[in-house]
Every structure is written in structure tokens, then in C-alpha cells.
Design a protein around this nucleic acid. Structure first.
Lengths: 346, 346
DNA sequence: ACACGCGATGTTGACGTCAACATCGATCGC
DNA sequence: GCGATCGATGTTGACGTCAACATCGCGTGT
């Protein structure tokens, strides 16, 4: 009746002081045991550990972070997890961070519009992180970028060169060249391109590299079809492409669009690879089981994730700014969706 | 020469005291401004905010957490992000948590073996989280489950009933029934099943429900083929199924296996849905663009994520244990991979 | 004119941990 | 045998924030 419970129960667990009392030692000795310091007597250590177990003691990371001035945590800013690449990279980042003893703080941007991004970055200011990895396409970032808290180490995973932060990404240009050359080497006159959204630096790099490769070989550069990474946009583009008898080879900027493209070609009765060759980009798990199995460019997401974390941790711990962009090479994976062109009326 | 820099630079930003000094007020007033308390004079507030901006002040969340005894952060334990469902759920969880003002701590389990899981859980003890959502299949969890720190609110996203924690998941049974009935209603004699791995509760539920539905309709129950969720396993199973002329309808326990299955059927020249109908489960983005577009069961991952977060936050804030499992209904999405059976020799 | 109330602001201390320093007893070298 | 050394342990204070309490000044009602 008289005593009021607080609205939010605080589960404060036992503290070092509690353990110390039970074990009959000082708090400092408990701290030493908790941190695996060597200068503790074996018997004492046992006693302390027993007390810890009995009380279910867990070190309070907030107090630790406050004391040490470090959170041992890195924030990862992502837009939706729908994108295959983002997900895979996040996976690799999380693994690498965990191995290095850093926790991962996932910071989703709920909406692409600028105020949401800005909002996410300002929330960042209050986040318990020592550094940040940005996994959203930099164009989106561009307008809001200014608002990043100063003095917070940042690594951007994208292919923009315009950033003042260290950059790690797949070598988009090399991958696109690989794709284009593969089709050219099979004997195709030229290669059409189903590109990613114009707002994406990665898409831009792939497009440019495809174009450059064609030009270097003296081939005609067909108009680009712009998609938005989704299978749906690949399908739309595919309907156009299927109607054009000149098209014998298409380089889709990712596997998902390639999937939509394949569907459109099936619907129109264009046989892959007999009538048209298709190559993708990413090598998602499913690509090997598309119909027909998709020739594609494999991105090494694990490496991208690992390198991003390494770069960020170096920056956090040593203040190193490593401004040379890191480009992770790709690999051509040949399956059944590409073949030499059918000898036709030429 | 005399002063040694610490190995790890601590970027300690300005604190309330610094802001207070600059603005000529007490630390407490700064705190009030930072927390949007109303009882601060407008002029004072402006002065403090100006000082904050000038110094680039960001509240220290470690100190806050220490003071408040709460982190406002929830941990999400995941195995790899490769699984489509996990990723989508994580996405929804992250969004819901952010909206509720909670941060997300991603806690990857690096390896499925038991010691890795155990390890992840013991790491959990040191994590700055108020509660935990477990996104790994509970069978894996089973053996290690005992080691979960006591007193830490937990919500499990899975279909096990054996847990002492609140459970949220898709209504697997209802979904599997929907799938099976759809094929039966089209006129198929019976429905074959390409199941998920035996270690998965979700797979188990789907299998049981498929079986029950067949029995209730007095149909023969064909032997189950066990996959492991991957397209590859679907392909293997598909080769068997394709060789069996009795098979006219297959319910694959997820879309990825359905994809592999479709590929195997194409290879053997069995036409979908003319010769064989195929239905999947999940409704992943790509399913609409498989060849043929896949009829499937749509899971409402967003809802699962939202409800998990809600349940966890209720538990954190009120200590409520809501032990009735929450089952989120699914929806049948009809596309082109299912059709009535070809009238054959019957 | 006086007590009272109320809003704005300041002061104090505690949250849990751990580095730095202090202490104490034992072993070592000569 | 005695100071030096070393290892085990204890004591103190500070990290940044904010609830609780204290204070101060001004307007209000009678």
C-alpha cells in the first residue's frame, strides 16, 4: 500500500561487490578473476568463481564501457535486408566482428527517404558503438552524409569514390568485364545490359565497365535497360529484350533480375542459351538452380565483410585512415545459361 | 618523450560537464535539456543546445545504461543469415525494435556444433541486452538451452512446444494444410512431400500437418523425401520424383527446395504444372519469377517479427510471461506451378 | 505585508567496474 | 640477518548520467 513499485522493473543482477562479499575478498580481486588476470592465487580464484556461479554473476557491460571509454561494439547501418548482397555482407561482417571480440549493433534505416536516413544517423549519435559500417548505397547516403557524427570511425561498403571514409567493396569493374568478355569470347557480336538502378554506384560501375569492355573490343554498345535489382524489373526488361531478335547475349547486373529475365524469355519462347545467352552477377545460392542454371559472377561477400571490419577496427584502435579503396575480386562461374550464338542470318 | 600515449586511443567526447561549463549552467540542467524535460526556461534551453552543438555533444549511452539499469537493447541470436526466413524475420524484428526505441544486438552463432552455440550463449552473459530473441531452430538449441543466463527475458521464434519461453512463429500447420488442400482440391489423388531437415521443428510441423490432411481426406500417404532447405537438396529429391510416374503433385517445404525441384523436373522433361504440380512455402521474392511462377504459401514474417519484439518488450518491462504460443497465419498464393492433374490412365 | 506555492535551477550521490596506488608477507641474494 | 624484490590482495577514485532533494526568486491571495 505504501511502497510503490517502479513502472519498469530493473533486473539488476548481482554486482562485483556481492560476489566479493560472498567470497570474502575485495571487489578488485573479483575484477581480476573476471578478467582472467594471472596474479590471483589459485585457491582464491576458485573461491571467487564459485561465488560467481552461485550468484549467477554477469559483468555489467555498461559499467565496463563507461570505465573503459569503449563499447567494443560496431554499428552496421543497413537499409532493408531484402537485398541479397547486403544480407550476405552483413552475415560476414557479423562473423568477423564476433571473432574480433566486437558486438554488432544493427541500425536499420526504416525508410529510404532522406529524413529517415538523417534520423538514423542522428540516432547513431546515441548509439553505444565505437565505429560504424555503412551498408547502404552511397547515393542515398549522399545528401544526408554530412550529418554523420564527427569523430566516429566509419567504413563504407560501396563503390563510390567520393567519400571521405575508407571504402571496401567488390571490384565491380573487374566483375562486369569478366561477364562481358565471357559472352564476347563465346562469339557474340555484342552484349546487352540490364543495369541496376541509376542511384547505385555499384550498378554504375558495372554499367561503365561493360560499356568500356565493348568499346575496347570495338563492339557496338546497345542501349542500357535500367532495372532496380528486383526480379520484377528483370521481367519487365526481359519482355522488351525478348521481342528484339538482334539480342543474343544479355548481362544482367544481378542474379535476381536475371531470374525475371529468364522468366520473360521462357514466356516468349526464346530458349536460353540457344537463342539468347544470359549472365548474372552475385552468384546467389539459388542461381545454380535457375532454369537453366545461371552463369554468373561470384562476389566474395565474406571477404568484403572481413575487410570492412578489419579496416574499421584498425581505425578505431589506431586512428588509421586507410583511404585507398579496397576492391575484392570476383570470379566467373560458368553454368548453362551461356553458349555460343546460334549461327543465324549473318 | 615523457608522456606515453595509451595503446588504444579513447575517443571520449565532451560530457555533460563540458556542455554545462560552456553554457554556464549545471550539469543537471544539461541533462534536462538532453531528455526533453519541460521544466527548463526557453532561453536556458537555447543556450544549452547551442553549447551542445558547438561541442558536438552526444550523450554517453554507457553511463545512461549504468544509471538506469537498462540498456534499451535486445539481442538477436541467429545462425547464418543464409536462410531466407531468418533474414526476413530479422529484418522485421529490427524494424519493430527500432520503432519501440530498442537497439538490436546481433549475436551470430558461428558454427552449428554444440560448443559454438554454448559459447554464443555464454557470450550472451556479457552482452549489453535487456532480453533476447532466438532465431535458430530449437532442436539445435535443445542441447545447449540449459545454459541460457537466468533471469534474462527470452522469446523463441520457432515451432517447438517444449520451451519454457514465450514462442512466436508462423502457423506451420495451417500453412501446410492450405498447401495440401489446394492440390487435393485441384483433383490430385494424393500429394507428395519434400520435407525440411528432421532437426527442424518447423519442418516437422509442416510434415505432420500434410500427413494429417491427407489422412483426413482418406488419401494415401506417400513416403516423405527429406531435404535440408537448400535448392540442392530439392534438386536431388526432384530427380527421384521425376522418375516416378505416379507423382502428380508435390508440396515442397520451402521455396528454395521447390526451385531445385523445378530444375530437376525440367531436366527430365516433366512439364510443370501439366505433368506435375508443385507448391512451395515462404513466398520469397523470387518465387513469382521461377519458371513456372511458383504457387506457394506466404509467411507473414513482418508480423512474426513484430509480435516477437512486442512479447519480449512486455516481458522486459512488466515481467509478463505469455506462455501461449503465438501462431501467425499464412496465405495461399496461387501462381502457375499448380493445376489439375492431366487425365491419364485411371 | 506575509505565507505559500510553484517553476527554474543547483548539489549530491550512486549505478558497477577497474587502473593506479598502497599494503603486507614471503623469498632472495649476499 | 637485512634491505630488495615480488606476488597477492586491498583501497580509492573517476568514468557520465540522472533521480532525489535542496534552494532561490517571484507572483498570488488575503
Amino acid at each position: 500500500m505504501s511502497a510503490e513499485e517502479p513502472a519498469v522493473r530493473r533486473r539488476r543482477g548481482p554486482s562485483m561487490a556481492d560476489v566479493a562479499r560472498l567470497a570474502g575478498v575485495s571487489g578488485q580481486t573479483v575484477s581480476r578473476v573476471a578478467n582472467d588476470r594471472h596474479n590471483v592465487d589459485a585457491a582464491t580464484r576458485d573461491r571467487v568463481q564459485a561465488a560467481m556461479r552461485e550468484l549467477g554473476y554477469r559483468p555489467n557491460s555498461a559499467a565496463r564501457a563507461l570505465r573503459n571509454g569503449q563499447f567494443r561494439s560496431i554499428g552496421v547501418i543497413v537499409f532493408e535486408l531484402h537485398s541479397f548482397g547486403t544480407t550476405r555482407t552483413l552475415d560476414a561482417v557479423a562473423a568477423a566482428a564476433t571473432i574480433s571480440g566486437y558486438a554488432i549493433n544493427l541500425l536499420p534505416v526504416l525508410d529510404v527517404n532522406q529524413s529517415a536516413v538523417t534520423n538514423a544517423f542522428s540516432r547513431l549519435g546515441e548509439q553505444a558503438v565505437d565505429g560504424v559500417i555503412i551498408l547502404i548505397e552511397a547515393h542515398t547516403l549522399d545528401e544526408a552524409g554530412v550529418l554523420l557524427p564527427e569523430g566516429l570511425p566509419v567504413v563504407v561498403v560501396d563503390s563510390s569514390a567520393h567519400y571521405d571514409y575508407p571504402i571496401v567493396d567488390t571490384n565491380q569493374a573487374q566483375g562486369a568485364r569478366l561477364a562481358t568478355e565471357h559472352l564476347l569470347d563465346l562469339g557474340h557480336e555484342t552484349v546487352w545490359h540490364l543495369g541496376g538502378p541509376p542511384t547505385s554506384f555499384a550498378a554504375d560501375r558495372r554499367r561503365r565497365s561493360w560499356e568500356l569492355t565493348l568499346k575496347q573490343r570495338g563492339r557496338e554498345v546497345p542501349p542500357v535497360l535500367d532495372g532496380d535489382w528486383t526480379p520484377g524489373s528483370g521481367y519487365e526488361a526481359g519482355r522488351e529484350l525478348a521481342a528484339n531478335p538482334d539480342v543474343t547475349a544479355v548481362f544482367a547486373a544481378n542474379d535476381q533480375m536475371a531470374l525475371g529475365l529468364l522468366r520473360a524469355l521462357h514466356e516468349r519462347g526464346r530458349v536460353v542459351p540457344h537463342d539468347i545467352s544470359v549472365i548474372g552477377f552475385d552468384d546467389m545460392e539459388e542461381a545454380a538452380h535457375f532454369w537453366p542454371p545461371l552463369t554468373t559472377i561470384r562476389q566474395n561477400f565474406a571477404e568484403v565483410g572481413r575487410l570492412s571490419v578489419d579496416a574499421l577496427i584498425r581505425e578505431i584502435q589506431a586512428g588509421e585512415h586507410h583511404h585507398d579503396p579496397v576492391a575484392v575480386p570476383t570470379k566467373l562461374v560458368v553454368r548453362s545459361s551461356t553458349a555460343p550464338p546460334r549461327k543465324s542470318a549473318s
